[in-house]
């Protein structure tokens, strides 16, 4: 109850202000206009073709980039967590990849590759790999020395050591990494999509911004926020709880 109250109050305020003070539905859309846009999006109707196709393209890009980033980040992170030198070597490139905004990566990659799906996906991979890498390295560094020595003495090596030892020991870190990078991804995926693509939510939002219609922008914002929160709450939340329980049981 307490959680929802301020949100309800906020919507009430929003309605009051847009109905009585700032009466300019194009620039300051009241809640009912946004709701109408939301329904219009859900009924697959939009100015640049079916909305589900755009949303699907965006989600596909996000999921592809997120999975690639997760695999690369985890593998590099394990290496960097084991060897301090690898971490020091990786630190600067990772920092640069992370600090350049995705749209600038898109500028550069567009010039290099032309208009392709690979451009926004690789821009996102560059940005999403960094948090996974840092989290994994931290997790591997936290593994106790005794376990490592045990592994050495039993000659567990290579692939078997990775899948049988490292990854299970850092399972809770991996879920946390996946969670953080997904939340980050859904916030920035649109930024990578505004330029140089035939479809995606980013294009739609830019179209509405150019034509000065705010209601659909807010509607898309609500949709994406809702998807992000739902995935976080329904997928990663329970997963993290379960892994935490299991690690406590095995202790």
């Amino acid at each position: 109850m307490l959680n929802a109250a301020p949100v309800v109050v906020g919507i009430g305020l929003w309605w009051t202000i847009t109905t009585f003070v700032l009466v300019q539905p194009r620039l300051f859309p009241p809640p009912q206009d946004v709701l109408a846009e939301l329904l219009r999006i859900l009924s697959n109707d939009g100015p640049l073709g079916p909305t589900y196709a755009h949303a699907g393209a965006t989600l596909l890009r996000l999921l592809t980039a997120w999975s690639i980033a997760f695999v690369i980040g985890t593998l590099l992170g394990v290496l960097a967590g084991r060897r301090r030198l690898v971490f020091d070597f990786m630190a600067n490139p990772v920092w640069i990849a992370m600090s350049v905004p995705s749209v600038v990566w898109v500028f550069i990659l567009l010039v290099l590759f032309g208009i392709e799906n690979i451009v926004p996906v690789s821009a996102l991979v560059l940005l999403l790999t960094a948090p996974v890498f840092l989290g994994t390295a931290e997790g591997v560094r936290a593994i106790s020395k005794d376990l490592l020595e045990m592994c050495d003495s039993y000659h567990v090596r290579g692939w078997q050591r990775l899948t049988g030892f490292y990854l299970p020991s850092i399972a809770s870190y991996m879920v946390a990494n996946a969670r953080v990078s997904f939340a980050y991804g859904i916030r920035i995926v649109l930024i990578a999509e505004v330029i140089g693509l035939p479809n995606g939510v980013g294009i739609l939002v830019a179209y509405w911004s150019d034509t000065l219609f705010m209601a659909p922008i807010v509607a898309w914002g609500i949709l994406l926020t809702a998807v992000g929160m739902a995935v976080d709450l329904l997928v990663f939340g329970p997963l993290q709880r379960r892994i935490r329980q299991e690690s406590e049981l095995s202790r």
Binding site: R187, V218, T225, D232
Partner: peptide, 23 residues
């Protein structure tokens, strides 16, 4: 009271906020 508001503010796409604010 602020839990949901915080969650919402964390998950809102940055681009949407930028367009919304600038316009």
């Amino acid at each position: 009271l602020t839990l949901w508001l915080l969650q919402i503010s964390i998950f809102t796409p940055t681009l949407i906020l930028i367009f919304l604010f600038l316009i």
